[in-house]
């Protein structure tokens, strides 16, 4: 789906331009920090972010060339991973805290008020430490996020007869182009050749942790919904239900 003239450098700049703006919660975090208040703020924020995520995906070169159902499926599979990757990126300079938005950050202890959160919090904080350790660069970060989107249903797509036959090869070609862009970004650092490809491996290995935490988070959110602890907003509810449906 990519125009052949799009070099790795151009592709990265297009993906950088697609980055969503900073999203503010825009109201004081409801105090005291009770389970209901924290969940209310986080789901409110997630719902706002999801709207921007759709615009982001549409600006990834090649994405809108996919069929509408394919676009839906990709986003439904990856949305929490993309939200979590953004959260880790925002939190990278704040050890021990998660910066959900410029006006909402929570320490590990504050997150504990939500039942079942501490495990997910710890995994997010640990993954963020790894990002810090790797000194992830902005260009690398945007490539990884695009890869999460394009790779999200790679292991589901072949089992579904309804997909158009060229869809998978289109997806693979686009994923290759983003991989070239990531390799280009790593090469810019001037690292010795061997360290460039070990860095590529380390960056891609981050994604398996992100997938893992996202699955944990999805189960948690589903649980909160079932227990009626928090009212879910329309888009967030739709995305959660779709995910639960795909995975069952």
């Amino acid at each position: 789906p990519l125009p052949p003239a799009l070099t790795p450098e151009h592709l990265i700049s297009r993906i950088m331009e697609a980055e969503p703006p900073e999203i503010y919660l825009m109201k004081d975090m409801n105090r005291p920090l009770t389970e209901a208040n924290v969940m209310m703020s986080l789901t409110n924020l997630a719902d706002k972010e999801l709207v921007h995520m759709i615009s982001w995906a549409k600006k990834i070169p090649g994405f809108v060339e996919f069929g509408l159902l394919e676009q839906v499926h990709l986003l439904e599979c990856c949305w929490l991973e993309v939200l979590m990757m953004g959260l880790m990126w925002r939190s990278v300079d704040h050890p021990g805290k998660l910066i959900f938005s410029p006006d909402l950050s929570l320490s590990r202890e504050e997150g504990n008020c939500v039942q079942g959160f501490s495990e997910i919090f710890d995994m997010l904080i640990a993954a963020t430490s790894r990002v810090r350790e790797l000194k992830l660069q902005r260009e690398e970060y945007v490539c990884l996020k695009a890869m999460i989107l394009l790779n999200s249903n790679m292991c589901l797509i072949s089992s579904e007869g309804s997909e158009e036959p060229q869809s998978r090869s289109k997806l693979l070609r686009l994923l290759d182009a983003v991989t070239d862009a990531l390799v280009w970004a790593i090469a810019k650092s001037g690292l010795p050749y061997r360290q460039q490809y070990t860095r590529l491996a380390h960056l891609l290995m981050l994604l398996s942790h992100v997938r893992h935490v996202s699955n944990k988070g999805m189960d948690h959110l589903h649980c909160m919904k079932m227990k009626n602890i928090v009212p879910l907003y329309d888009l967030l509810l739709e995305m959660l239900d779709a995910h639960i449906m795909h995975s069952s």
Binding site: I54, S55, K58, L68, Q71, V72, L75, D234, E238, M239
Partner: peptide
Amino acid sequence: HTKLLQLLTTKPE
């Protein structure tokens, strides 16, 4: 996925 479809098919401003 009504809302998602709606956002995907909206033309950028």
